[in-house]
Structures are given as C-alpha cells and as structure tokens.
Computed example of a mutant assay.
Amino acid sequence: MKPLAGKRIVVTRPRGQAAPFIGKIEEAGGTAYAVPLIAFRPSQDRQEEAILAALHTYDWILFTSKNGVDFFMQKAGHLLHKIGAKWAAIGTQTARAAEAYGLSVSYMPGRFSAEDMAEEIRNGLFLPKKMLVPKSSMARSVIADTVRQSGGQADEWIVYETYFPADEKEHLLEVIRMEKIDMITFTSPSAVRHFMQILKQSQEPLPDTDYGVIGRVTKKEALSNGIRVAVCPAVFTIDALVEEMGQFYKE
C-alpha cells in the first residue's frame, strides 16, 4: 500500500510552484487540494537604480529563493555582462533556478536556511567583501546583518513582494468545511499568516487536522498561532516533507 493512500492533503504553495509537491503526494497515493495562499509580484525598491548602477561592484550575489532568482533576472538580466560576481544560493531548488539562467552557483550552505548560512559566515566558511541579496519584502535580514558583523558589506534589494490572492479565501473555506482533510501543509510563514487571517475574518475555528511544515521559521509561525505541527522534516525540501508525511501515517 502506498504511504499516503486515502489521505487528503491541502497544499498552500503558490500557483506555479505547487505542481511538483502535488505530483509527489499523488505518487504516494494521496489526494492533493491546491489552495495557494501566497502569490508574488515585482516590487519597486527605492534603491533600484543605485543597485543596478553598482552591479559590477559586488563580489557575491546571494539568492535565498527561486523567486529571488526569477525577479532578479526580470530586473537585471540585461546587465549580466557587467556582473563579475560569483553566485551563491540557499537550497538545491534555488541553485537549480539560477543554473537554468546560466548562472553557475559557486557556494551553497550545507543546510538550507538563513540561520545555517549565517552560521557558516560566522565560522569563516563564506566571507564576501561586498554582497548583494535580492529578496522578498517579507524576508528577514539575518544573512546581510551577519556579513556586516563579520566586517563585509551587504546590500539587500527587494525585488518582489508577497501578497495574498484574495480569490482563494472562499476556496480555502470550502475545502476545510466540505472535505475530510487529513493534513494542511505550509512551506512559508506568510502562508501560515494568510491562513490564520482567513480563519479570523470568517470566524472559522482552527481545523482539527494534522499540519505539516517546511523550515524552522514556518514551524515557529505555526506554533505561535496555536497550530500543532505533526510533521517538520530536518531537511527543508518537498521530498523530505512527503517522505516524513508517509512515515507519520505509517506509525
């Protein structure tokens, strides 16, 4: 019998990024309900012109997500010939996205989180002199702050913003009210926040179901909202989450 046979699982990943996760749930015998609770759009950073003009001065450009890569390329792809920096990425998916644009990733931390990257900087494993971090409006500054504390220079460039796709509100409520859901999954703290926002606005109680998350920050956000996290893999990937979900239901 397949590990997720008969299980109904809600996937809150953004539209356009949910398909591989849904595919893996279905391969494992489960039924996936796609309810994207976050979406992305380009943002206009006040520093944009200055950063574009200074692209040739960075020795490292660090991507923390696939979105960071995509929105950076939208804004700066035409200037690649001016960039002499090396490329760094957090996580295999991010590195794959960069390499799809022909950017050769020279550094990736052993574990896939901002905290682990900061730890490697503090330990002297990664020491940029001047680094650029293209990021989301919601992203924290832990990596850039650590570079600065270690004597380097770090600029952060907000290339995209995260927002809640309002048309998904009724969809989510319908799924949690009408379907017998076994697990709701979150892969970002923003998705947790939007989920809680919908429940509060609709005076809907927190569904009495299992919850699976990726990442320490997502787990912390879930716990702070009273969500009991049943599954949170040590490796921050979709593959690890699906595998752990299978183990959870087997036990």
Rank of each mutant, 00 (worst) to 15 (best):
F72D: 10
F72L: 01
N67C: 02
A89W: 02
F72P: 07
F72A: 02
G68F: 01
Q74E: 13
I90S: 09
A97D: 13
D70V: 05
A85S: 15
K75L: 09
F71C: 03
H78M: 04
K82S: 13
K82W: 01
Q74V: 03
N67G: 09
G84V: 08
L79P: 00
G91Y: 04
A88R: 09
T92P: 14
T94Y: 09
W87S: 11
M73I: 10
A98I: 09
G91R: 06
F72T: 04
A89Y: 12
I90A: 05
A98P: 06
G84E: 14
A85G: 13
W87D: 12
I90P: 09
A89I: 07
A85Q: 15
M73S: 06
T94F: 10
D70I: 09
A95M: 10
A95K: 14
V69C: 01
A76V: 00
A95N: 08
A88K: 11
G68D: 08
L79F: 01
G84Y: 09
A85Y: 15
T92A: 14
G68L: 04
A97T: 12
F71P: 03
V69Y: 08
G68Q: 01
M73E: 08
K86A: 06
R96C: 12
A89Q: 07
G91F: 07
A95F: 09
K82P: 05
Q93P: 06
Q93K: 15
A97V: 03
A89R: 04
A89N: 08
K82R: 14
I90M: 11
M73K: 02
A89G: 07
W87G: 08
